[in-house]
Nucleic acid binder design. Structure first.
Lengths: 190, 190
DNA sequence: GGCTCCATGTAAGGAGTTACATGATTCA
DNA sequence: TGAATCATGTAACTCCTTACATGGAGCC
């Protein structure tokens, strides 16, 4: 038996984020939600129409979002608003802060380095690490710019949250550096 | 047109990891691969039979894994080995180190805190952050133990890679602390 | 003999992806 | 008027999830 309240407690991350975006951007179209996801600096979601529109539909079905049609051209557009149940679901999602959320995230760089010894030559290993360091450095630069923008837009919690990404990438940088230095001490396989 | 080589370049993270586990554990059964995933400290995959066995089948179909039946009871069991194409695919996957891998990961804690202001009271916000800090601290403890074990097992690169998780959780800890302190300075909404 | 792991799957369902389709608006 | 962009979808497909089924091995 799956009740509606079970379903609401088990919203996917994407569904919950949609609620959050509608909460923040006030009444807005699904397209605006889509852009918000597209502008996010994380690689998790593609923000494809094929994920957002169905998610919005599901949330409407659960009574968490309302849609009110606004005249616009001949087709009109629909504005989404949070229902009070939707606001409740968003708050519950934040407050529940399930314990699994604190697990180390699955970092694709870490995943690859886990199997680094499968490469043949030390030089290849060093090259892989260098590439990871360069990628991380360049992402860090653009993320820092983005976070500065948020800061100056006095975006409050939005800025503080985004700062988490900077902390993460800085930590990854230091970790890669540590690995590079440790490997340099290791007897070479070449 | 989707050629076989396209498919091999586009292996999912899970498929590539399966190759990696078979590479590391030598000839082994799909069940061993499953356990390896189950013991992983990241929350990404459930290591369900329904994901591993089909993934192994796909990798066999692509010629990246070989399976050789070994007698065992009446049903026998199958041992998986990497083909040379499989080893090549694993190495290519590591070396490609696609640039998206360096994006900030999608951290569920960060995602939630992004919408922290949707909560009504400052006390609720503080409670949410405290919970995140406690969760992170407890995960960090068990992860540190696990990493120490790897170190003493002289697991080389395995240890260095796992260390990345520790760096990540430590960074999250510091970030949460910074947020908590910043919020304490903010004019209260209560 | 029964209970609990070990081990290997399958079936149904759901969510997200890519790719396509369509129409309206804006601007050069 | 043609191109680009805004805006809203749909269809097919793939992978992962949950839940179930099965069957042997080891142990009390």
């Amino acid at each position: 038996m799956t009740s509606t309240s079970d379903r609401i407690e088990g919203l996917t991350e994407l569904e919950s984020c949609v609620l959050g975006v509608v909460w923040r951007r006030g009444p807005c179209s699904a397209y605006v939600v889509r852009l918000e996801f597209a502008h996010s600096h994380s690689a998790q979601w593609s923000a494809s129409a094929g994920s957002i529109y169905p998610a919005v539909k599901r949330l409407q079905g659960l009574g968490l979002l309302d849609s009110t049609p606004r005249p616009w051209g001949r087709r009109g557009r629909t504005e989404l608003t949070l229902t009070s149940a939707g606001l409740g679901a968003l708050r519950a999602w934040i407050q529940r802060m399930d314990s699994w959320t604190a697990d180390p995230t699955s970092d694709p760089v870490r995943t690859r380095l886990f199997f680094l010894d499968a490469l043949e030559l030390d030089e290849e290993r060093r090259a892989a690490i260098r590439k990871a360091e360069e990628n991380t450095r360049s992402k860090l630069e653009s993320l820092r710019r983005h976070v500065e923008d948020l800061k100056h837009a006095s975006a409050g919690v939005e800025y503080l949250a985004a700062l988490g990404g900077v902390f993460e990438l800085e930590a990854r940088s230091r970790w890669l550096e540590a690995i590079r230095e440790t490997l340099a001490l290791r007897p070479s396989s070449e």
